[in-house]
Amino acid sequence: MAYRFRAFGVGCDYPEGWRVQIVPTKTFSDENGVVRFDDMRPGNVGNVTVTLSWETASVQDDFVQKYLDNVERQYQKKMKKRCRVLSREHIVCNGHPAGKVHALMQASTHVLRPFGKPISLEILQIVYHCGQSGQIIMGTVTAEQGYFEKNRDVLQEMLNSIRCHEVIDSPLLVQAGGVEQSGSEEAEEQENAV
């Protein structure tokens, strides 16, 4: 991967040609935040969104199992039966027990394509709880099915690169790339100074 995004101890690698956006409608702090990564290379705009989110939470020891047990029901509730979970599994991510879900969703309108014909989307999600930071960390890929199949390895590598409790000198660090919306005044000042 060409670049690394880091904020408040949470980080993720991403390829060249991708845009990093701090979601302006969500809180962006050390306690919780959402960052969106979009492939902006010609021919790929609108085909994929990867989100990295974190939230401070106390959880039970069987958090991953409960997540995996309830994920299909939650997807069905949110997606009105247009989503099918293809696989659920226990994995290790960043040294933490994690859950990994692969799903297929049918959509006629979506954040990736606001207008147009029905599309098939693949969703790949990794979630875990970090005892050291006390946060639930979640990485989610939502991509058109053809894009997902062609770029599966890169998308998986992005999710596998998620880290928590990284030590950094500032609350926001993006190596190259570009941030559309900064998360704090201090980060804005740092970005303007570059």
Score class of each variant (00 low, 15 high):
4 R>W: 06
5 F>L: 05
6 R>S: 15
8 F>R: 02
10 V>I: 15
13 D>M: 03
14 Y>D: 01
20 V>W: 01
21 Q>L: 15
24 P>M: 00
24 P>F: 01
27 T>K: 10
27 T>N: 14
33 G>I: 01
35 V>T: 00
37 F>Q: 06
39 D>E: 08
41 R>D: 01
42 P>W: 04
42 P>D: 14
47 N>P: 02
48 V>I: 10
48 V>M: 06
49 T>I: 11
50 V>G: 08
52 L>A: 06
54 W>Y: 06
55 E>L: 08
56 T>R: 10
57 A>E: 15
57 A>K: 15
58 S>P: 00
58 S>I: 03
61 D>Q: 15
61 D>N: 15
63 F>L: 07
65 Q>W: 01
67 Y>Q: 08
70 N>M: 04
72 E>P: 04
72 E>H: 02
72 E>A: 12
74 Q>E: 12
75 Y>C: 05
76 Q>D: 09
79 M>R: 08
79 M>T: 07
86 L>F: 05
87 S>L: 10
88 R>Y: 00
92 V>M: 09
92 V>R: 07
96 H>N: 14
99 G>C: 08
111 V>N: 09
111 V>C: 05
113 R>K: 14
114 P>K: 09
114 P>G: 06
116 G>M: 10
116 G>N: 08
118 P>A: 10
122 E>W: 02
123 I>C: 01
123 I>A: 06
124 L>A: 05
125 Q>M: 12
133 S>L: 09
133 S>A: 11
134 G>A: 06
136 I>K: 04
138 M>D: 04
145 Q>C: 02
146 G>F: 02
146 G>C: 03
148 F>Y: 15
149 E>W: 01
151 N>V: 12
152 R>I: 02
154 V>N: 06
161 S>P: 02
166 E>G: 13
170 S>Q: 09
173 L>I: 07
175 Q>C: 09
176 A>M: 04
178 G>M: 13
182 S>E: 07
183 G>I: 00
186 E>W: 05
188 E>W: 13
194 V>L: 05
